[in-house]
Each structure stands twice: as structure tokens, then as C-alpha cells.
């Protein structure tokens, strides 16, 4: 897998800072699960966080509480539990390990989606979308920042050609009409900021596809 499009620097920094809106952070974490380069970048910016933490003017704390009777966790010798699957590790708790076993809902002919639930107060949405090969999605605008990560197959738009692991960032107001590449279904994970129900990506898409 050769990743051509990585997330923008400002998103990597915010990811390390722990300041990203939840839905966008899910896409970032999924990309990093697939991308050693960005894991390394994150590790560098964790150090920036550490340096800033050290500079905090200290607050008074009480004495260290009594330690729990339980002994610290024993080292596992690096043998981590690895499950096979094509769903990025961070999302497996939500949808399981395999893309083909996700509960897909049909949106229009050749287009399916699955919404991942976020915390109650989240103002963004996180969705898997699956598009049949060769299908072109109509022009659709974006109501807030949007982050897309390709998980399977590929798609093209006026800006480039995106394959597995690639991240596409769309800013507010930009329109594009992606075409799923021939071959298998194209599956992406998409985080959209803003009130998704009315202005979100899928709402616009449905409108365009069904003419409502």
C-alpha cells in the first residue's frame, strides 16, 4: 500500500494535542493505523505536548493516594492481540473487523452507508460509505470540514486519484463529484463537521440522487 495523500499538518498537530472534533479524530486515528509515516509524525508532536506540559505552572496537589493492592499490569512481551480484518483497528469496536460484514444501508442504487455513533453532544457525523465501481456521485457541496479516508478500492475526482490509506480533506464550500474506480466497490470513512442532518454530505447526495 503506497499512501499518496496524508492529512494536513494542522490536523496532525491537533490530533497529538487531543483537540480534534471527535469524528475527525476517528478518521485521523484510522489513517494512522494504516500509515507508519503519520504515526511517526504523531509521536514527534506528542513530544511537543510533553514539553508544553512541563511548562505548566504547577497546582498544589494532596499526597499520593494509597496505591491499590493490585499489582501493576504484567508486560505482555509485545505479543499484542491482532485480529485479521480490513477495518482500521480503532473502528473495530464499533463495526467489527471486516468491511463486508458491516451493516450496510442502501441509500440509492450502488450507494450504501453505515453511520458510526459518536458521543451524544457531537456536532459531527462519522460514516462508512460504499460505492459501486464506476459510479459517479453527483456534485455535492460541503457544509463544514470533511475528512475522507479510503479503505477499499479507489476513486477519482478533479483533484486527484485516491487509493487505500489516502486522506482527502474538503473545506467548506468546495464541490466535487468523485467517481469510484473500476474493479471492486470503493469504501471510505467520512467525517463531516457541522449539522449533518440538513447540510451534510449524505443529505445533499440523497437530494441530488433522488431529485427531492
Amino acid at each position: 500500500m503506497t499512501i499518496k495523500f496524508h492529512p494536513a499538518p494542522e490536523n496532525l498537530l491537533s490530533c497529538a494535542a487531543g483537540s480534534m472534533p471527535e469524528a475527525l479524530a476517528a478518521v485521523m486515528a484510522s489513517h494512522m493505523a494504516m500509515c507508519p509515516r503519520c504515526r511517526h509524525e504523531l509521536a514527534v508532536f506528542d513530544k511537543v505536548g510533553a514539553t508544553l506540559l512541563e511548562e505548566m505552572p504547577p497546582e498544589t496537589v494532596g499526597t499520593a493516594p494509597a496505591l491499590p493492592g493490585s499489582a501493576p499490569v504484567a508486560a505482555t512481551g509485545g505479543a499484542q492481540h491482532v485480529e485479521h480484518g480490513d477495518v482500521p483497528e480503532p473502528l473495530r469496536a464499533a463495526v467489527g473487523p471486516r468491511l463486508d460484514r458491516i451493516k450496510w444501508r442502501r441509500l440509492a442504487p450502488g450507494v450504501w452507508f453505515h453511520t458510526v455513533s459518536l458521543s451524544e453532544h457531537s456536532k459531527a457525523s462519522l460514516r462508512f460509505i460504499r460505492v459501486a465501481p464506476g459510479l459517479q456521485l453527483p456534485d455535492h457541496g460541503h457544509s463544514g470540514s470533511e475528512l475522507t479516508l479510503v479503505l477499499q478500492g479507489a476513486f477519482n475526482d478533479a483533484f486527484g486519484s485516491y487509493g487505500v490509506g489516502d486522506v482527502l480533506e474538503m473545506d467548506e464550500g468546495i464541490e466535487h463529484s468523485p467517481v469510484a474506480a473500476p474493479g471492486g466497490d470503493c469504501i471510505c470513512l467520512i467525517a463531516s463537521e457541522g449539522p449533518a442532518r440538513y447540510n451534510g454530505f449524505l443529505a445533499r447526495l440523497v437530494q441530488k440522487l433522488t431529485g427531492i
Binding site: 490530533c15 471527535e22 476517528a26 485521523m28 505536548g49 510533553a50 480503532p90
Partner: peptide, 23 residues
């Protein structure tokens, strides 16, 4: 310090912002 920063960062997302910690 870096390790402790990451632990504190994630706890803050989880406990104070009540959001999922994806990273």
C-alpha cells in the same frame, strides 16, 4: 513525560469532554 502527556490527554478527552478517544 511524553508518555504521561498522552495518558493525560486521552483521559481529558474521555472524562472531561466525554468523547471517544480514537487516538
Amino acid at each position: 513525560t511524553t508518555w504521561i502527556f498522552a495518558i493525560a490527554r486521552n483521559l481529558r478527552i474521555d472524562q472531561l469532554r466525554k468523547e471517544k478517544t480514537w487516538v
